[in-house]
Computed example of a mutant assay.
Amino acid sequence: MAADPRGKGVTVNLLLPGGVTVTGMLPQDVAREGHGFLSPEVMGPPIVGLASGDAADVHDERIGCVAEFGQWLRDRESRR
């Protein structure tokens, strides 16, 4: 998917929460926040980060743990 929009001002990245997340996809009686499951809100800051100018050149990346997004971005910058 990332190859199709390349050069057209659209970036495609894969952002994973880094664990089981409490969503409507899990049965209510199985998953509750605070029992080893992540809150969906963990996705917010990395999504905002990827939409910012700081990540304008981030494309075709797999980001596997949103809790470590800030460090991932800093590490990426240091490799440039």
Score class of each variant (00 low, 15 high):
G36S: 05
D60Y: 09
F37Y: 15
A2Q: 08
P46Q: 08
L38T: 03
A56M: 05
P45E: 13
V30I: 12
R62Q: 11
P40Q: 12
T21S: 04
R76W: 13
M43E: 07
D60I: 01
K8T: 15
R74H: 08
G49I: 12
P27Q: 10
P45A: 14
P17L: 08
E61A: 10
S78H: 08
N13M: 08
D60C: 10
M25W: 08
A55D: 03
E41Y: 02
I47V: 14
M43C: 09
L14P: 00
Q28N: 09
R74G: 02
L26S: 03
C65A: 13
R80F: 02
V30F: 11
N13V: 14
C65Q: 12
W72N: 01
V66N: 01
E41S: 12
G64M: 08
E68A: 14
G19S: 06
E41I: 07
P17Y: 05
G70I: 01
E77M: 04
T11H: 03
V10W: 10
R76A: 13
G24K: 06
A51P: 07
P17I: 04
L38G: 02
R80I: 05
N13E: 07
L16S: 14
P40T: 15
D57V: 01
A56H: 06
A55Y: 04
P5N: 10
L50C: 05
P40I: 14
S39D: 15
M43S: 10
R32Q: 15
P40G: 14
T21V: 13
P5R: 12
P27N: 11
P45I: 00
Q71Y: 00
R76F: 04
T11I: 04
K8N: 12
V48W: 00
G36A: 05
A55N: 03
G70L: 02
G18C: 07
E61R: 15
G49L: 06
A56P: 00
V58Q: 00
E33I: 15
I63H: 07
K8G: 04
A67P: 00
D57T: 05
A3W: 11
P45W: 06
I63W: 15
A31S: 13
G24S: 09
E61S: 07
V12F: 08
G53W: 07
V12Y: 05
D29K: 04
P27A: 12
D60R: 09
L38Q: 11
G49W: 03
A51H: 03
T23R: 07
K8M: 11
T11V: 09
I47R: 04
G34Y: 02
T11K: 13
Q71M: 04
G19E: 06
D75P: 01
G24H: 06
T23L: 05
G64N: 08
N13F: 04
L15P: 03
M1R: 11
R79H: 12
G49T: 11
G34P: 06
G7P: 02
A3C: 11
V58H: 00
A2H: 13
R74A: 15
R62F: 10
R6S: 11
T21F: 00
M25V: 07
V12A: 11
L50H: 06
V66T: 10
L73K: 06
V12I: 15
L26Y: 03
R76N: 07
L14T: 15
V48N: 00
A2T: 09
G44K: 05
G53E: 14
I47H: 02
G53K: 13
R6L: 12
V10Q: 08
